[in-house]
Design a protein around this nucleic acid. Structure first.
Ligand SMILES: [Mn+2]
Ligand SMILES: [Mn+2]
Ligand SMILES: [Zn+2]
Ligand SMILES: [Zn+2]
Lengths: 218, 218
DNA sequence: AAGTAGTTGATAATTATTACTGTGTCAAGC
DNA sequence: GCTTGACACAGTAATAATTATCAACTACTT
């Protein structure tokens, strides 16, 4: 009744791609890279195998801040630092990690099985970027105004222009990267543009500009 | 143009409920408790205000393992331990926390703004429970077999019986707690039961047994 | 060769959270 | 007292990441 794993070609490629990476990739980052080698692979296969491989100890699934799980080929005990802005994750080596132990009177009756240390801050790339981005001193309330009006808001135009430059459908993350907007704002703008018929969504979470959209820009 | 916060009744009740709690509740745990005082409050209001209040420093939003965000009224710097089985979170006090500093040559160019220490393990409640639960030594692969067949699988019967005992609609978490099954498996069983017409879902994510369901049990 | 258990791609479903919409409340300013 | 405008609300739709289901396929074991 023992469940034995087969090393399928898909699994091999996935494992290979993780081992090659230095960035603690997410499932969909891996999917994007793997698609180039196996164009017919399904995102579900990537998720499925990441789960299976981390359960059987071939790779490590990280518990880390942020919504998405990240994966690590390095099975040695080590800790991480992550960027609160772009969610990038890097390795760190804590010399005095063994000092971080829980005094027994503090353990609340838990059977302690481990400890994670996570530093956070702004990565070099983001701290450079933020210097030229600080114009405007944006109020936090994102995307309330103009969402319903007929004409394009500044942000909507920005998103639409970025979309016009893409050859194929792209996700809100790609657009966020191409503009100075945050993903949250981007998807909100896209919704508004979709309603106006200026963009459309060929598949879930991917968007393209429509003919009307191109006209609206000119 | 300064955004000023109003202390509405809803906000007061939410804040009150957090301050009363010792368990680092999630948004929907709070919602469930608050509904008893304000039956007409919307889940969106709870989320909105938790976000607003944590942004303005009235409460703390925790970055912690697990899918759901948790909230803490305690604004003092402290760390947490969490149960990998039931996701309970408790406070801990680390005597030598200040020793955990990142050597400057290790910071990878980050502007470090903080550090989180998180212990994990099995909480007392779960380690007691697991003693009597170990019969069967369950293989992990959850819910492959029997999902489509006409008769009830052992797990389906278990879930259905738990549902029969509930007066009102309840979520998969409640059922997981009442049975020896994991939430993942529960929701899978429920889907199968729904397909057979033995349970129904009056609202999203809440389930009740149907007449047919009761008959199937006897 | 046949049977069986593992695997895949496609797609639907789930979960936690956030956005939108129309309506409501309230404190100035007239 | 009436208007205005910002903040809030309930209800609901939409989003994003992940997980489940299913029919077809593939590799092993006998
Ligand atoms: Mn690492
Ligand atoms: Mn705490
Ligand atoms: Zn960064
Ligand atoms: Zn527990």
């Amino acid at each position: 009744m023992q469940k034995l794993l087969r090393m399928t070609h898909q699994r091999e490629v996935i494992l290979d791609e993780i081992k090659k990476s230095t960035t603690h990739p997410t499932a969909d980052e891996l999917y994007e890279r793997i698609k180039k080698k196996l164009p017919r692979i399904s995102l579900a296969t990537v998720y499925r195998n990441l789960e299976i491989m981390s359960e059987s100890g071939l790779i490590n699934k990280l518990e880390i801040s942020g919504r998405q799980k990240r994966f690590d080929w390095d099975l040695e005990q080590h800790d991480h630092i992550y960027c609160v802005q772009c969610h990038r994750v890097d390795n760190i080596d804590l010399a005095d990690k063994k000092d971080v132990t829980l005094p027994p009177e503090q353990n609340r009756g838990y059977m302690v099985s481990g400890c994670r240390v996570e530093f956070y801050g702004i990565c070099p790339k983001c701290s450079n970027a933020s210097i030229k981005k600080k114009k405007g001193e944006r109020k936090k309330m994102a995307c309330k105004s103009k969402c319903g009006s007929k004409e394009l808001s500044e942000k909507q135009r920005e998103v639409l222009e970025a979309l016009a430059k893409c050859k194929d459908a792209c996700g809100s993350k790609d657009i966020a990267a191409a503009t100075s907007l945050e993903p949250k704002q981007v998807s909100c703008q896209i919704t508004a543009l979709k309603k106006k018929g200026l963009v459309e969504s060929p598949v879930r979470c991917k968007y393209t500009i429509t003919g009307d959209g191109k006209n609206a820009l000119s």
